[in-house]
Amino acid sequence: MTTSDTKSPGSDDKSARAANIFDVARLAGVSHQTVSRVLNNVPSVRPATRERVEQAIAQLRYSPSPAARALVTKRSRTIGLITPGTYEYGPTSTAVNFNVAARAARFSVDTVSSLDSDPPGVRSIIESLLRQRVDAIVLVVTDIQVLDIVLGLDLGIPIVIVAASTRRNSSVISIDQYRGARTAVRHLVELGHDRIFHLGGPQLAPDSIERVRGWRDEMIANRLVVHDVLHGDWSARSGYELGMRMTDIEPGSAVFAANDYLALGLISALHERGLRVPEDVSVVGFDDVPEAGYLMPPLTTIRQDFASLGALIMQKVLIAMEEPDNVSESTPLPTSLVVRDSTRRVERS
């Protein structure tokens, strides 16, 4: 009597075919979509299920190639990223940290930097990325008009929008600019300041809008006079030029600048006008750029966690691709106050 050996996909026989995603799914007792979710690190998979899939992957020595995975999922494993064509710290840091998160999930990123931040320009870029068959699009919004347009688009693929906004939407992710601004003003109030000015960013920038709103609400909450806002373009030059125009500033005043570079230019202008920081005027910035701790004086500022933002964006993309019915609104990420030497307590006689 003769017997025959049964070969499994995980057999050491060199003639055995390589295991595929369906073999892993059968061995783990799950669907191939669940295997895909485990491979893509989607957090919605139950720990016990994830463990079974990982054991099956190890047993079968399954190692999916990008080409094979594209055939199974009908995806390019490429994400389109649209950023403003500037070197502003916030958008640049967001893009860098998203790229890190995407590579960790084994996706490539096709980045398009656009000088045309208006709705027609952004729509044209979206159309070009769709022609390249990207799996999803991430858009860093710097113009509130673009946000309104993009939220109304039906692209057929997931889109994740990075923008501070009062409008709650499952596609929108942000860092909490509003509460960060309130924290900055509250710090100045606790130091005894009652004349607190705001040097704002571009009027149509979502971050700027939310920081103005936070400054104003905290001022009103403390029954302080809300002065007119001067708007700049995020640059140190703009901060300097506007600082030379802020003639209402006097010893004992404080300024919350909408970003650290505006604060840098402002401090230079105050110095030329004979006003010392922080002896005469306290200054708070926003972002905590790498240079903030080395200015003269070191700058008190609001820190944003761009590493967590990049990871959250990628998580949102993966869930939107794998579990579209489970995509929900995201709570804005918190900021933190970094106290340095550009603020000091007001001495009242």
Results as ranks from 00 to 15, higher is better:
5 D>I: 13
7 K>C: 09
14 K>L: 12
17 R>N: 01
17 R>H: 04
20 N>K: 08
22 F>C: 05
22 F>N: 13
29 G>E: 00
30 V>S: 01
30 V>F: 11
31 S>Y: 09
43 P>E: 10
49 T>L: 07
53 V>G: 04
54 E>G: 06
57 I>G: 09
57 I>P: 10
61 R>P: 05
67 A>W: 13
76 S>T: 15
76 S>E: 09
77 R>P: 02
82 I>G: 05
94 T>A: 08
103 R>K: 12
105 A>R: 15
106 R>I: 04
107 F>I: 08
114 S>M: 03
115 L>F: 09
116 D>N: 14
117 S>R: 15
118 D>L: 11
121 G>W: 00
123 R>P: 01
126 I>W: 06
131 R>N: 01
131 R>V: 01
131 R>L: 08
132 Q>K: 12
136 A>R: 09
140 V>T: 14
148 D>W: 02
149 I>Q: 15
151 L>T: 09
153 L>K: 01
156 G>R: 10
157 I>S: 02
165 S>Y: 02
172 V>P: 13
174 S>R: 01
175 I>P: 09
175 I>G: 12
181 A>P: 02
188 L>A: 02
190 E>C: 04
195 R>W: 08
196 I>S: 02
205 A>V: 02
207 D>V: 14
209 I>V: 14
209 I>R: 03
211 R>Q: 11
212 V>F: 13
212 V>G: 07
217 D>I: 03
219 M>H: 04
223 R>F: 05
224 L>I: 07
229 V>N: 08
231 H>K: 07
233 D>Q: 09
234 W>F: 15
236 A>G: 13
239 G>F: 04
244 M>S: 14
245 R>N: 09
246 M>V: 06
246 M>D: 05
246 M>G: 04
247 T>G: 06
250 E>A: 15
252 G>L: 15
254 A>E: 06
255 V>R: 10
256 F>V: 04
257 A>P: 12
258 A>S: 08
259 N>Q: 05
265 G>C: 04
266 L>M: 03
266 L>S: 05
266 L>V: 01
267 I>A: 12
267 I>F: 10
268 S>T: 10
271 H>E: 07
272 E>T: 06
275 L>S: 03
277 V>N: 10
279 E>C: 09
281 V>T: 05
283 V>P: 11
289 V>L: 07
289 V>Q: 03
289 V>F: 03
296 M>S: 15
300 T>I: 01
302 I>L: 12
306 F>N: 01
306 F>M: 08
308 S>V: 13
310 G>R: 08
313 I>D: 07
318 L>H: 08
326 N>I: 07
329 E>V: 11
334 P>A: 09
336 S>N: 07
338 V>W: 11
340 R>E: 03
342 S>Q: 00
347 E>I: 15
